[in-house]
Design a protein around this nucleic acid. Structure first.
Length: 253
DNA sequence: GCCCAGGGTGTTT
DNA sequence: AAACACCATGGG
């Protein structure tokens, strides 16, 4: 079914999935409600038979056709697609995605997961992702308890912006991508990379092309005189294959 | 001890 | 506009 749980859930798009003895547990938010998934690679029916999780894993979109196209672009992208062909772009809650990638800055994936777990347990209702209201009202000292460090104030700024309407995810859905990025970057603590991740993983804007340290290495080495437009309207998906390959395969060394 | 991590801000050239 | 220090924190 061209969904690989491990490849998708460890590719650094979401930070609340874990595996034990082959059993995956995923926590996700929808309209401030917590969804919990328990699933194994051998039996994906909990995803295929549930409307929310079907959409979360983007099961309505054909990745195989896209991967064929990508593989004709160049050898690097072909290798990245073949390395983890079961990756799909998740449809995450916009608020949770934005928050998560504010946490991600100058940070590593394991520590991001730990921090978000602490945030959910400290500020969330029965382990759900904390609301914007709760986080905006939390003190910097309380947020620091989660290990946020210098990002505590950034989280507060972001939460406040969502509360007062400076950021309105519903409106962003109908706006051109440049306008979306500009809007998000009004907040102190949200730069181009965090904005792109929030748009790609939270609002499913597949043309967004987040440039983190790994993607900068990839672009410098393999695409020295190109930019994201080279990858077309689904550049964000190409980015995800390239990112995961670069970060975990060791081929870049 | 140093350098790095799905970066951003503020200051200095 | 490009280069740089600084930002907390844990792991290598």
């Amino acid at each position: 079914m061209e969904l690989d749980l491990k490849q998708t859930l460890t590719s650094g798009q979401c930070f609340r999935a874990s595996e034990q003895n082959g059993v995956w547990t995923v926590f996700a938010t929808s309209k401030q409600n917590l969804h919990v998934l328990t699933v194994t690679q051998n039996d994906l029916s909990p995803i295929l038979n549930d409307e929310f999780w079907f959409n979360y894993f983007d099961m309505g979109f054909s990745y195989s056709k896209l991967k064929q196209q990508f593989s004709s672009y160049d050898e690097t992208l072909k290798k990245a697609c073949a390395y983890a062909p079961g990756i799909r772009i998740l449809n995450q809650d916009p608020w949770e995605a934005l928050c998560s990638f504010v946490v991600s800055q100058n940070n590593n994936i394991k520590r991001i997961s730990t921090i978000i777990k602490k945030m959910c347990s400290a500020f969330g209702v029965s382990n759900a992702f904390p609301s914007a209201k709760v986080l905006s009202e939390a003190s910097v000292e309380q947020l620091n308890q989660c290990g946020l460090g210098f990002r505590s104030q950034y989280i507060k700024n972001t939460a406040q912006a969502v509360l007062d309407g400076t950021i309105d995810f519903e409106k962003l859905k109908n706006k051109p991508i440049d306008e979306c990025r500009k809007n998000l970057m009004l907040i102190k603590g949200i730069g181009p990379k965090v904005a792109d991740c929030a748009l790609l993983f939270g609002l499913h804007r597949l043309d967004c092309f987040p440039m983190d340290v790994w993607m900068k290495k990839v672009m410098n080495k393999y695409y020295p005189n190109k930019d994201s437009s080279y990858f077309g309207q689904y550049a964000g998906i190409a980015q995800q294959y390239l990112f995961h390959w670069a970060r975990t395969s060791g081929d870049l060394l």
